[in-house]
Design a protein around this nucleic acid. Sequence first.
DNA 1: CGATTCCTTGAGACAGCTCAATTTCGGTGG
DNA 2: CCACCGAAATTGAGCTGTCTCAAGGAATCG
Lengths: 245, 245
Amino acid sequence: MSQAVAEQDCADCPIRHRAVCARCEPDELNLLEEIKYYRNYETGQTVVWAGDEMNFVASVVRGVATMSQTMEDGRTQMVGLLLPSDFIGRPRRATSPYDVTAVSDLTLCCFRRKPFEQLIATTPHVAQRLLDMTLDELDAAREWMLILGRKTAREKIASLLTIIARREAASGLVSTKGPIVIDLPLTREAMADYLGLTLETVSRQVSALKADGIIVLEGKRRIIVPDIRSLMMETGDDMDGGMIA
Amino acid sequence: MSQAVAEQDCADCPIRHRAVCARCEPDELNLLEEIKYYRNYETGQTVVWAGDEMNFVASVVRGVATMSQTMEDGRTQMVGLLLPSDFIGRPRRATSPYDVTAVSDLTLCCFRRKPFEQLIATTPHVAQRLLDMTLDELDAAREWMLILGRKTAREKIASLLTIIARREAASGLVSTKGPIVIDLPLTREAMADYLGLTLETVSRQVSALKADGIIVLEGKRRIIVPDIRSLMMETGDDMDGGMIA
DNA sequence: CGATTCCTTGAGACAGCTCAATTTCGGTGG
DNA sequence: CCACCGAAATTGAGCTGTCTCAAGGAATCG
């Protein structure tokens, strides 16, 4: 059963300082508070289907969602991995071009689209924050394109684990020193859809990294990285001196 | 020799209604006009190196540039194809994470970064337009990710040609009915870097599309598409009824 | 018209895919 | 607490699309 999260005050919000509302002044926050509502989804539930109307935009408060595209014959490519504080939807557009799916229990902080559009037209702090977040996403998409286009299967896996580790570190709770524990929010198939691989190849490469001592598995979904540097060596990236955050 | 373009009035600018300045009121345009300057580059010249400082942002006025990422061992992935009206650079960031290269003679309309940042903080029309353009780029990046991650070499080539045809059509000059002429701004190697392929594979697949009558070559860089629908059939996309624009 | 750069084509190698069993894990009910 | 079940993951064997390496051929520019 999912542990739904009830409406809560922005002041107590866990993503308050990272989400689209991060730069809001108290009065702006009040405006947002008026048009917001929470929605909860269970693992596996669809948030929107590609092509469907979407009357809201939202921030991920808790849980993980994916955005993906599917071709007629079923080939699927994930194009967004939505973690807490990430933004869903696009102002001035009524339909989502992508499927959005909850891959864990998920809580969204939704804003009705029309009022939100109004709001970004009038409150510069929301608009500015949204621009910066969109630019960050674009950078992430470009890094992702390098992964998809040019990296080997092993490098892809190492890159994905590094990206998730980095995000978990950025979100606070984890220490960057010593062994890192990654609670994978993705099945092997979802990892494959992220990386443009088959699930069998993902499985083989994860096993290979394990055999080489780069990672340790604890159950299926928990991965322990004894030394993040040796994992980063496997990504193919330059990374000389690049810190986790 | 390159045919440099001299400073010109915004009113006469060929990208006036599509670039970052598209929604500006006359008075806002005057502000922009004060901080703008033109720069010309010849084919092959580098606009910025990855990691270099970049004191300006810019719109492409004329010509084509690429943005790309290169790994230590030389593997290269293009992450942006910059055509007239596209925007280069990022407000509030001093260095470019990507190499930007002119792949034809190129004219940029540059704005010094600091004043431009000032300007988007104060003139909502520029900031709003920039947000919309960035969101469009993000959509394009996601379509690109599907191409990189899941399409076959043949589908990749067909997709690239379709994308370029669409852009050329959107920029005006071309009719969408009857045979379409694409003046390829890219070498086979650049196409390979765009698509995550080798140049040999690009060459083979272009030859295959030609052998199948989907495209006709006129010299190396000019491609004629007798029937855009049959090309679009080859992209693997749904496209039922989807118009060119 | 010579040179260089770009492109094409071929032959063989190999990374990742497909198809097909098993195995393991995590949850659930007895 | 344990046995069982289904979903998820692993592993194997063979195949194939794309890459690599290599040799010519054509367009463009001085």
